[in-house]
Every structure is written in structure tokens, then in C-alpha cells.
Amino acid sequence: MSEEIELETPMGAGSSDVLSAELREALDGLRGEIRTRFPERQRAPVETIDWMAIIQQIQRRVSTLGMSERSGEVDEFGMDEIVLRRARPLLELLYEHYWRIELHGIDQIPDAGPCLLVANRSGLLPYDGLMVSHAIWRMRPKLQPRFMVADWLITLPFVQPYLARLGGVRACRENAERLIRSGASVLVFPEGQKGAAKVFRERYRLKRFGRGGVVRVALETRVPIIPVGIVGAEEAHPILFKWSAPARAVGLPFLPVTPTFPLFGPLGFLPLPTKWVIRFGEPISIDHLPPDAASDELLISRMNEELRSEVQALIDMGLSDRGSVWE
């Protein structure tokens, strides 16, 4: 205030300045009086909203939707180390607290060198593959077995980008052989889609093990086969019956009707917290077989059946270990 007056005086002319100065003084006094009588309420400061910044931020979020957690560096089968590392706590939570997984026979897995793990398949989403792979990683951090996923699942929209980054590979002989040759262990589910589509009353009864592709891969690459029995996964998504009419419309092989799906909508995708037992069996060595065994069809089909009964035995053992589905 005073500054203004000082500035104005040189320009102004006499009495009117004095008058205005007096007037201002009086007004200031009045203002002071009012302030003391009516204590000032805390007024919220008016925030200026920077709309442009918000729009830019939204734009950035939209254009990088779902990508911020990806490193972009993938291995030749599309696994992303950073995504996997970020997913570890979630996998650990599922492993330790949700399914309370009990692990037997981890010593059967060789410390070095690739092997072919053969397990029973169940449920539409590959939780079993993720869990076995995580279990082995927990015990042997150097081993990161890649799990094989059926064609229709690895090309399913929205599922495909994540499965590949978590280590899923499309199930086919070429991929399995290439992975083993590059030194990785591979987890396969030779039951394939027939295993995933098992209804609840057929649980823990193994389906046919394909046409012996697993044995063929092992014979070609000369790696040991380790049977794996997974108990609990088959009750995580109990399929009551299959509904094929709406499934064809969306390109699925069938639509499973479980106690929670499609009754509860997307919530029905949540698996049930059953008790899991994963049991590794004794490795089936193929060293004693001649190198041309891969062309012996009868031998392959016999070994395939042998392998199937091994896995079935491991499942039966796992079932007797477990008190009930939940314990």
C-alpha cells in the first residue's frame, strides 16, 4: 500500500493525494476492525487444475497399457525374465498359502543337464505347469523348466502374451527338441487337451498319452524322462460337464461348467483352494537303449504305456498322502 502512495506522490497534485491517503488509511482501519471482529475462516486454496498434464498422463497410460511391467527383452521362445521375476511373489503366494503344495522327490531331478518331465494335465488354465515349474525353480534356482501349453491356449487372445512371457511354449515336438538341445528342461503333459477336458468324475484317471511323442523326443535327444504326479489341480477347476454350443462361437474346444463358472462370471475363473501334492518319480533312463530305438514303434508304444502307469502310480500315492481335498 505504502509503496503505491510513494510512487504516486511525485506525479499527483497536492490535496487530492492527501485526501486519498486519508481515505485509504480509514479504509485500512475499517478492514482491520472487521478482521478482528469476524475471525477469518480458513479458506481452501483454489487449486488450478492442469488439465493438459492429466490428459497427457492418461494418454501415456493408455498407449503403454499393460506394458510397463515388461522388459521387452525376451528369449527365443518369448520368456521375459523381468515379468517372471515380478510374478514370483504371486506364484509364491499361490504355492505356499493358496494350494499349500507338498513336494516329494525333488532329488530325482538331476542337478545338471536337461530332462523331460512328464505330468498329468488338468484344468483349462495351465496352473499345474506354472506351479511345477515354480516348485522346481524354488528348489533349484538354476533350473527353469519350460512348460508346454496346448495350441488353442497359447494362441488365445489376452492369455497368449502373458503365458509366453511366463515361460509357456506351444506343445509340439519341434519346440521340445529345440529347448532340450539348448539345455533347458521341459515339462510336458502328454494327455493334452483330453486331460484338460476331463470331467470331475474322471479325475485322476489318466487318458491316453498321445501317440508316444514324449518318448520319441526323449529318444531323439537322449535325456532322462521323469514322471511327475500332480494331485489337487484336478479339483481346482472341477468340470461338471462340458457345454460345446457356446464354446464354438468363441473358438474354444468346449466351455467347462464348474460349480463357479459361468455362474459367478469372471470370478468363476478363480481356482478352488485345494490341497496339492506334487510327486517326482524315479527317472526313466534311456541310456541302455540303442540309438536307433526312435524308429522302433513297438518299443515306443510300450515305453509310453510304462510311463503312463508310472505317472498313475505317483498320482495314487499322492492321493493317499492327502487327507482330503482341502487338507
Binding site: F77, D151, T155, R170, R173, E174, N175
Partner: peptide
Amino acid sequence: WPDNPNFLT
């Protein structure tokens, strides 16, 4: 194709 192996020879 959805059923291509990861590396086509």
C-alpha cells in the same frame, strides 16, 4: 498358423 512351431525350418 496357430500350430506353427516356434521356429520353422
